[in-house]
Simulated scan of single mutants.
Amino acid sequence: MQNDLVAALDIGGTKIAGALVDGTGRLLARAQRPTPAREDGDTVMAAVAAVLGELAQDARWSAASAVGIGSAGPVDASAGTVSPVNVPGWRDYPLVDRVREVAGGLPVTLVGDGVAMTAAEHWRGAARGHTNALCMVVSTGVGGGLVLNGRLHPGPTGNAGHIGHISVDLDGDACPCGARGCVERIASGPNIARRALENGWLPGPDGDATAAAVARAATAGDALAQASFDRAAQALAAGIAATATLVEIDVAVIGGGVAAAGEVLFAPLRRALGNYATLSFVQELAVRPAQTGTDAGLIGAAAAAWTPSGAVRESAAEPTAS
């Protein structure tokens, strides 16, 4: 098993990353291109092909047995198509077929990026050893995935666990998905920054108005900045508690750029969770930061390629990145 090798793709609105990944989770070769997100679908696919082409130049490519893809969504794993919100040129785009052609006919497994992150964290990260878990990416958007009864649970289309579009404020702001008061509309990085600015927070002299800048201000004691993170934490807590109550998860793992704020996010999140996760069977729910970092999408896409049925891949060795 430790000699297995697959190609992995992590496709988002900003970058397309690829790697050859072995059976211990090590990334043996890497390639990356910017995502031409505002171009037509074939131009975006050309960037994917360029990443695969660079990986194919590695002498180890011939040992690859499959390709795993973690893509921004929505995805439809049953049809092999993707329609990422932030890549307008891809609507019902036949990504699996196109990647299979470029990869010389190798088997291809497609999952959403939240599911890929979940596979990575359950295999190599903070959810390892847990039978029932929710793993979340909180960044430009908010996505997630589930492990139930020890198995990855992507759902029929690969979108199960998409917690970012649970409504936690029934009369809240309209979300681009068409609903109102979604977790993403409150807790994503751009919305943390937007709310802080609307409430009177002022960026520093450099004009940086990102969620990272809001986090730095909150760490320094800025009450308006902290209030925006507190509101994001409340929304995340409500969504996590609802999920836990529904399917009895025992750990929630949070990664992504917003999670890098550390205790600015996690301290109010744990407090708020106590107000929502009140039933006896969810009171011990743990919240942990993710451990697989920026490689989560690649590690998870590889895990999905090895175990498309959802079974969890086990390995004793710790992964390292080359």
Score class of each variant (00 low, 15 high):
G80D: 07
R195M: 03
A193T: 00
L27G: 07
A126D: 04
Y276V: 00
S315M: 01
T131D: 14
R60L: 15
V75L: 04
G256Q: 07
V183I: 15
M45E: 14
E198R: 09
V44G: 01
G12D: 12
D4Q: 14
H162I: 13
Q234T: 15
Q57T: 15
G112Y: 00
P190I: 09
A233K: 03
D222L: 03
H122F: 12
P84W: 15
L152W: 06
G150N: 08
V82T: 12
E54T: 15
H130V: 12
V142D: 13
A72D: 10
V138S: 03
A217L: 02
V102Q: 14
T81A: 10
A64Q: 12
N199E: 15
C182K: 01
G89A: 08
R38G: 01
G80F: 11
G114Q: 07
L52G: 03
D42W: 06
P34M: 11
I192P: 00
T24P: 00
T131C: 11
R124W: 14
A119L: 09
D40H: 12
R194T: 06
A238F: 02
E121S: 13
R38L: 14
T294A: 13
N191F: 07
A46N: 04
V142T: 12
D22T: 11
R151S: 11
M136T: 11
G256C: 06
P203R: 00
R231P: 00
R60W: 07
Y93I: 00
L298F: 04
L202S: 05
V183A: 09
A63S: 14
G25Q: 02
